[in-house]
Amino acid sequence: MSELHSKHKNFNFAEGELLLINKPYRWTSFDIVGKVRNAFKPLKLKVGHAGTLDPLATGLLIVCTGKMTKQIDTFQAEEKEYTGTFTLGGTTPSYDMETEIDETFDTAHLTEEILKAACAQFTGEIQQYPPAHSAIKVNGERLYEKARRGEEVELKARTVTIKEFELTRIELPEVDFKVVCSKGTYIRSLAFDYGKAVNSGAYLSKLRRTRSGNFKVEDAWEVMELVNFIRKPLPNPPREGGLSEQEGLNILEEPDPARVYRENADPLVYEPLKGNSRSNRHEPTEAENVLWQLLRRDATGFKIRRQHVIDNYIADFVCLQKGLVIEVDGGYHQHTKEADADRTEMLNHWGFKVIRFTNEEVIQKPQSVFETIRQEIQALPDRQSKVLPPGEDLGGASL
């Protein structure tokens, strides 16, 4: 591993660092930059990435901080290596799994010989049309914005170089591949063009960037591994006179559990649920309102939150300190037993105990319900936060 990005070097983020990050599935490149930038708060540091990865792709993303951002263009220009999967027999408007299949094709004629021979057509310098669903700007607007509105998109061919293109697995309708290519190559377009070359159709169903220049994904940080490293406490007490700006980068305050979840959550899931939770607070059911009047203002001796997002769910009530979730079943929150079991399993995974009451119990015996909750909270030890990177285990968010 080069000293430039070694995990064991002494970092100076303000002066400038190059960071290798293993981008998770469904994260945008901007999500990664935002996560790293937020880790430095309250300090404001310049952070940028070198080479966009689509949300459905995973793998190596180069992120630069401070003065190193001036070298982003240099890193972007390096050749890239990818592995992934084409699915034959169909096409999609986006050339990947972001959109639904719009046309199907026969694959009965495809043999290993035909499939491997077609790779040669795409080796060397070629002309390639980018997907209509791409971030390329035309007259100041991204192409994907026009495509999503159903507007006609005029595409212009671009010259790219594919140094290597080989198939590593053939199990129709899927073929795995390895590609080494120049900056600006769209692997989605390669999938589409490859499908036509074998008299069928194809779309990109899996993509991972394994190398950019001399930088390899096996040397990369996991997102939360890096974030937690940036926030780690100083090994020694601060000197008299306070902290320097650089020392301040390494301070990790004892996190508020709600903030820890918010900063580790998958933004594609968390933000919509957060909006729903606000709506639920403004329009509670009768039973929820009755219970909230009893639980509010720390009536149990501990802070209770209502309509709080945890992973892919909204908990009716939760005591984060004690790890107790209180669910009121009925009304528009009514679930099937199977859904309730999945929900409880997820909450247990993150270290929460779940207790449930029916609408009738809350409305008819509110004081009895309150006393049960109070006793449960007081009997529980303080909960230990469980922090995992997005994408791991049950939904990849922590609280």
Results as ranks from 00 to 15, higher is better:
207 L>Q: 02
163 K>E: 15
28 T>M: 11
367 Q>D: 11
315 A>S: 15
164 E>G: 05
217 V>Q: 10
225 E>V: 04
283 E>Q: 08
98 E>L: 10
21 I>C: 02
239 R>V: 07
200 S>M: 06
60 L>D: 10
191 A>V: 04
357 F>M: 09
110 L>H: 03
387 V>Y: 10
241 G>Q: 04
88 L>W: 08
9 K>M: 12
220 A>W: 14
162 I>V: 15
83 T>P: 00
45 L>V: 05
295 L>V: 02
37 R>F: 06
136 I>N: 05
339 A>R: 15
54 D>P: 03
103 E>Y: 07
296 R>E: 09
229 F>N: 01
176 D>T: 03
299 A>M: 06
360 E>Q: 13
398 S>K: 12
313 Y>M: 13
111 T>K: 14
166 E>D: 09
121 Q>A: 09
280 N>F: 15
301 G>K: 09
256 D>A: 07
361 E>Y: 06
147 A>D: 08
29 S>D: 10
66 G>A: 07
184 G>M: 05
216 K>C: 00
265 A>Q: 06
115 L>F: 07
61 L>H: 03
15 E>V: 06
282 H>C: 00
203 Y>G: 03
98 E>S: 05
231 R>S: 01
387 V>K: 10
220 A>V: 10
340 D>N: 14
152 E>W: 06
371 E>Y: 04
218 E>W: 01
284 P>F: 12
10 N>Q: 13
145 E>H: 15
355 I>A: 05
210 T>I: 13
4 L>E: 12
398 S>L: 11
63 V>Y: 08
278 R>I: 13
56 L>W: 02
117 A>K: 15
307 Q>C: 05
130 P>C: 06
276 N>F: 04
374 R>E: 12
217 V>P: 07
184 G>K: 08
230 I>S: 00
180 V>R: 15
62 I>V: 12
87 T>W: 03
47 V>C: 09
191 A>W: 03
64 C>R: 05
213 G>W: 09
371 E>V: 01
304 I>N: 06
247 E>M: 09
27 W>L: 15
382 D>C: 08
197 A>D: 02
350 W>G: 07
155 L>E: 08
64 C>S: 14
44 K>H: 09
263 E>W: 04
95 Y>I: 00
84 G>M: 00
248 G>A: 13
39 A>L: 04
82 Y>D: 03
230 I>G: 01
239 R>D: 11
36 V>G: 02
135 A>H: 00
81 E>C: 07
10 N>V: 14
